[in-house]
Design a protein around this nucleic acid. Structure first.
Length: 196
DNA sequence: CCGCGGATCTTCT
DNA sequence: GAAGATCCGCGGA
């Protein structure tokens, strides 16, 4: 009997949440099937003076959920093509979110392959923020979803405490502003990380 | 393996 | 108008 990580896990400093999400299991129920992947890469987007964060522009219809309580999903559409999934950190009233950048597929691989026809190998299924949303069928319908809800279609389960990941840190990928901050976390030498 | 450009929508200047 | 937390197919080495 598994249960999702509680809200208290998320309502902590964003960097801590980003680091400790490594190794956790993202579980997606869709079309009667359960898909799951281990989180192997994340990035923290902070409140305050992090100019790369969407919340830097203030509270807007799009960024509303980032200012709400922790443990909810922030999904947005980018480049007219892809969706990206974030998990909200910090308590209500304080912005902060964690971009889920890559998963190691664990179950439901057949369904993931059907959703990702461009993936030639299994390491292409979810090794990027847009790829993993496509693999798991995550879109704007999941905006605001409560990932601490055991009955929800999207949930996150605790990592195995007996196998703590070897965590590496770098600058974030694909941004221009506040680009020099060490806010990207990934599991060292994992084949499913989006890039070196 | 590496670099380049197109796709195509939302948000902000 | 333009940039953007991206991905993919193509061509060349």
């Amino acid at each position: 009997m598994r249960s999702p990580l509680p809200r208290a896990f998320y309502e902590r400093p964003t960097e801590t949440v980003a680091r400790e999400l490594l190794g956790a299991m993202l579980v997606r129920r869709i079309d009667g099937v359960e898909l799951a992947g281990r989180i192997v890469e994340t990035e923290a987007y902070l409140g305050g003076d992090d100019q790369a964060a969407h919340s830097y522009a203030g509270l807007t219809p799009r960024t509303q959920v980032i200012f709400g309580p922790g443990g909810h999903a922030y999904v947005y559409f980018i480049y007219g093509v892809h969706h990206c999934l974030n998990l909200i950190a910090e308590a209500e009233g304080r912005p902060g979110c964690v971009l889920v950048r890559a998963l190691e597929p664990v179950s439901g691989l057949e369904a993931m392959r059907l959703r990702r026809p461009a993936a030639k190998r299994d390491r292409d299924l979810a090794s990027g923020p847009g790829k993993l949303c496509q693999a798991l069928g995550i879109g704007l319908d999941e905006y605001g979803a409560d990932v601490t809800d055991p009955a929800g279609a999207l949930a996150v389960h605790a990592p195995n405490p007996a196998a703590p990941p070897d965590v590496a840190v770098s600058t974030r990928v694909g941004i221009r502003r506040s680009a020099n901050l060490p806010l990207r976390f990934f599991i060292r030498d994992n084949e499913h990380v989006s890039r070196k």
